[in-house]
Amino acid sequence: MNLFFQQIINGLTLGSIYGLVALGLTLVYGILHIPNFAHGALYMVGAFMSYFLMMDLGVHYWVAMAGSAAIVAILAVLCERLVFHPLRNSPPIHDKIAAIGILLFLEALVQMFWGADFRRLSSPFTGILNFDGLIIPEQRLLIIVGAFVLVAALQLFLRKTMIGATIIAMAQSRDGAFLVGIDANRVAMMTFAISGVLAAIAATLYAPINLVYPAMGHLVIMKAFVIIILGGMGSIPGAIAGGMIIGFAEAFGGFYISTAYKDIIAFGLLVVILSVRPQGLFAKGAH
């Protein structure tokens, strides 16, 4: 029974991380209809920035997280301005190839500075909480709580602020947004910045219980894509629900079926779902 609860904790941890990454991806897709293949690279850069700030500059974990979030946000905005904005009227295949270009560049750049080795990010939260036999490492609790707080803050931002409301308006109808005079450029930059912040924080939260290396974004971004297809591309609740579904599927699948193949579960799920419903699981009817 205890092992079962342990898997629930694992599922929640994984689901939180996947949810945060998928949230940024889905926001960008909802607004600009770009499947940002470089999003996983932003996540990876986020982990390395925190590593750099903590190990080389010796700042505290929280400060490193904030610094990394700021750097990656700027990087994401630069991507939007320098790459995706000029390509906004190009055939759809171009922005995907450009995103791949960014991904390759960022990975090679990080590898040049830090090498391809696996690294570990230490965290001040190394304790283990024991609730009557149910063991929860502090870092995992931090991930779950952190993700919850971030999602709540994002909801507040989107619902209560003007720029948040415009992001939602634009996600619902791009043409409509232009009609009512929304500054599309500002919204696009803002959305990319948010996606960068979410990716960097997710990476910094997850890094202490995982490894840091240049290719760390590959699996995460692919799973994030599976998640937003599951949840409907552009849907915020869908990204969170999809993240949890994949997180739990992996935790339980890895434990009860096979650890070696746990990474395949998400992709297998995607293949099955898209075979049955080409428009995704929760997507609305036509279009």
Binding site: L82, L87, H94, A98, I100, G101, I102, L103, A108, M112
Partner: peptide
């Protein structure tokens, strides 16, 4: 490091 930006520049 060269191919990545090259791809971006090419499609633009």
């Amino acid at each position: 490091i060269i191919f990545g930006p090259l791809l971006v520049l090419l499609v633009i």
